[in-house]
């Protein structure tokens, strides 16, 4: 049995990716299972989904804690989500990134594969710049770097189950298959992954009952972002429109009335840039890539 975990962002198709893999594995004559636990995810927020593939009926209905394969649909998630958690020694990490595999060292020895799935998807007209849909491209790559599913099954599954632009998605999957690069990495000294974000600590007892009073600004929603605003101070007229229309209260005004983006809370929606009368704000790809 092979266990796979997908990391994506709300709205990016991580749940569909796992389901599509299950459909494809079924076409290969295997027995798949895919699932997700969700309810509170928002567009852009980190989400996970899972799949199991086996030759025999699957007798587990539990979470996957030690995956054989981890698929990361968004390169930014490596920094903000615990994507390497539990990855088995000798397992495979597949990341959507233009960077070489060596840039994603795993705690334990593993095969690391990368491809610029965003670029591939966009070149085939799948998704948009702010929300590229990379799941089909990534499944094409997955069929190359593991024996879990065949490329022809992925193509068939796309034809049958992707409602919008199946032909383009199929071509993206083929290009993903052909462009992915793999490297065998030795694992990090000490076998520890870089630590991800830490959830707010809870007391072990809840004597006050279900009263919540901790400030939500301890939560850094910047992890949802793929684009970030850059303000050109020289162009700014201090009209404060950006402050006024920010749904995340992530813009402060300094003592002179200039806006300052509070990076840890900006979700990169771009409203400030659109509403800025002198066009002093530009949305750039997170990380300056």
């Amino acid at each position: 049995m092979i266990e796979i975990r997908f990391h994506g962002r709300g709205g990016q198709g991580a749940v569909i990716a796992a389901e599509l893999l299950a459909q494809a594995a079924n076409l290969d004559g295997k027995i798949p299972q895919s699932f997700a636990f969700y309810g509170a995810e928002r567009r852009g927020a980190p989400v996970v989904s899972y799949a199991r593939i086996d030759d025999r009926p699957i007798r587990l209905r539990t979470a996957i804690t030690a995956p054989d394969i981890v698929v990361v649909l968004d390169p930014g998630l490596v920094e903000v989500a615990p994507v390497m958690d539990g990855l088995k020694p000798g397992g495979t990490l597949l990341v959507n990134s233009p960077l070489p595999p060596e840039r994603f060292p795993t705690p334990k020895p593993a095969f690391v594969a990368t491809l610029d799935a965003t670029q591939i998807a966009l070149s085939h007209g799948v998704g948009s710049r702010t929300m590229p849909i990379v799941n089909t491209t990534m499944l094409g790559a997955l069929s190359r770097v593991s024996s879990v599913v065949s490329l022809s099954a992925v193509q068939h599954a796309i034809d049958e189950h992707v409602p919008a632009r199946p032909a383009e998605n199929g071509l993206a999957a083929i290009e993903g298959f052909h462009t992915v690069r793999v490297a065998e990495l030795p694992g990090l000294p000490g076998g520890k992954a870089p630590s991800g974000p830490v959830a707010p600590a809870l007391s072990s007892e809840v004597p006050e009952g279900p009263i919540a009073s901790m400030a939500s600004d301890v939560l850094h929603t910047s992890s949802w972002r793929t684009l970030q605003p850059v303000i050109t101070r020289e162009k700014c007229t201090r009209c404060n429109f950006c402050w006024k229309f920010c749904p995340d209260n992530a813009i402060d005004l300094d003592s002179e009335g200039f806006p300052v983006v509070r990076n840890e809370h900006c979700k990169g929606c771009g409203l400030c840039a659109v509403e800025c009368p002198p066009v002093a704000i530009e949305m750039v790809v997170e990380g300056g890539a």
Binding site: G10, R42, L219, K244, P247
Partner: peptide
């Protein structure tokens, strides 16, 4: 510097879980 047309007090905190661009 333009005058603020809304009171500066913020009773909604950052870090909330609305989708980007949420009305």
């Amino acid at each position: 510097m333009a005058k603020l047309t809304l009171p500066p007090v913020e009773l909604v905190r950052s870090g909330h879980s609305a989708c980007p661009g949420c009305g």
